[in-house]
Design a binder for these strands. Structure first.
Length: 183
DNA sequence: CGGTTTTGACCGGCGC
DNA sequence: GCGCCGGTCAAAACCG
């Protein structure tokens, strides 16, 4: 009763490097013709092609020109005193070529943190979905190598409708991706 | 005014 | 045990 199906789930032993274990790549073309950097009403992402490719390992810095969708399984042992541990929380990284950090995916986010990333001059921002009862998180990072590449990592899944008020076509693309990959 | 951003403090895990 | 590191909290500032 969680909701529908997850987006990407690829099981793989995550024991080696904690940097990244990309499993699925998809090529995405994002043309960003926006220059309004003041609001969340930026329009981007026009075309999208997907092709499930198995990524080698190593870091995501390899692919610089394209966007990639990376599914990672992570163990999240909460620091609280609850009894429900051992649940792995899947994380989905989405790498996009964009000029602005704020990619509007149709959801409402509240920023709750920002930390500096080592080996990176750009900070990483932590967001949380503001829908009641929805604790989906995401973090946005920018590569210092390619300042045009923004990595967005989603954690958890939304089980509520989106705010279609300001959802641009990015959301449509995402929903289509769910359909395609909803085994 | 209410929600969001900002930003340093705080906290748990891990390596030494 | 200590210090680093990644992630989160929370209070004040900020903004519509």
């Amino acid at each position: 009763m969680e909701n529908y199906s997850p987006i990407f789930q690829y099981s793989s032993p995550t024991t080696t490097t904690s940097s990244a274990s990309p499993m699925l790549l998809m090529t995405t073309m994002t043309s960003s013709g926006s220059e309004l950097q003041s609001h969340d009403t930026n329009k981007e992402v026009l075309g999208l092609m997907m092709s499930a490719v198995e990524a080698p390992s190593s870091d995501i810095t390899n692919l610089s020109q394209t966007s990639s969708f990376v599914g990672t399984e992570n163990e999240v042992k909460s620091g609280k005193k609850k009894a429900e541990k051992k649940i792995r929380k899947p994380r989905y990284a989405f790498q996009t070529r964009s000029q602005v950090d704020i990619l509007d995916d149709g959801y409402r986010w509240r920023k709750y943190g920002q930390k500096a990333v080592k080996n990176n001059k750009f900070p990483r921002s932590y967001y949380r979905c503001t829908y009641q009862g929805c604790n989906v998180k995401k973090q946005v990072q920018r590569l210092s190598k390619d300042e045009g590449v923004v990595v967005t990592t989603y954690e958890g899944m939304h089980s509520h409708p989106i705010d279609q008020k300001s959802s641009d076509n990015f959301e449509q693309i995402l929903s289509q991706m769910q359909i395609y990959t909803a085994f």
